[in-house]
Nucleic acid binder design. Structure first.
Lengths: 142, 142
DNA sequence: CACGATTCAATCGTGCGCAAATTAATCGCC
DNA sequence: GGCGATTAATTTGCGCACGATTGAATCGTG
């Protein structure tokens, strides 16, 4: 049996397992807000930069419109965002936070710190791991 | 604006993005074999330990039977595994690799090294990152 | 101005991922 | 042996992800 071929030797499985564990860890915090994990990430993006078009959100989150369109419709149905065609360019749909969408920012404000505690990582460890993952992601995508 | 609240500050997003980037990177290698990424991980598990029951696979992969049952049916439809009820306990379904399932191990044998090259990581870096992710996963699940 | 190429979002089809409900078999305890 | 509790897998329903296609608006070039 060649070495490095087992499930537990694979970085890909460690990533896959960690990512799903992380998603599950967020769920008890997001459920009371009526949000899913990708919806929360989408709101994080909008809180940083409101009024983005769908394609810009997609570039930021690395999701395509086939994923975002229905997700944004669900956020709209919850009254958190509005979807409006640009008058300058009718192809473009701009996503804008509603009052409730901005309010959600406060309601979700405790989540990052709660998750930081949950991971049990020092701030420095967290930053180091995050940067390693970003580097890895950039290399993989290249 | 509070610090540590932005999308790019979140470890969760770095993990989420890295995991999906990794999955996409495997795809060109798996497509010719007719496998998806979770199917490949499932086969890795079976190559290590053939004849496992569905619940054992689930514990190994941290997937529940609602995910595995249809996935395993698709692997069975491709002729890579057989699903058979245990005669000792009719509730249990045992998953066994077929000849084609074992052959696939050779056909997929180049993938780990190819992906290692693709990440551009040294063996030591990879092992370190992998162990950090495992530790993180264990802490999150605790 | 015309018209092919491009861009943008939406749609369609497939395969996860997981909570909740279901069905069938086994276990435990009397 | 009988019967409620438990266990194993399946099914159902929903929300991502993503490749591929579509349809509409805009751009670019002649």
């Amino acid at each position: 049996m060649a070495k490095g071929q087992g499930l537990d030797d694979q970085l890909c499985f460690a990533l896959y397992a960690a990512s799903r564990a992380m998603t599950r860890a967020y769920q008890p915090l997001l459920d009371p807000l009526g949000l899913t994990y990708p919806q929360y990430l989408t709101l994080l993006t909008l809180w940083e930069d409101d009024g983005q078009r769908v394609s810009a959100l997609g570039e930021r989150l690395h999701l395509d419109s086939a994923t975002l369109t229905p997700l944004l419709k669900r956020l709209e149905a919850q009254g958190l965002v509005t979807r409006r065609r640009s008058s300058q360019d009718e192809r473009v749909v701009q996503i804008t936070l509603t009052e409730a969408g901005w309010d959600m920012r406060q309601r979700a404000g405790h989540i990052p710190l709660a998750m930081l505690c949950h991971t049990g990582l020092e701030l420095g460890e967290l930053a180091a791991l995050r940067e390693q993952l970003k580097t890895l992601t950039a290399r993989i995508r290249a």
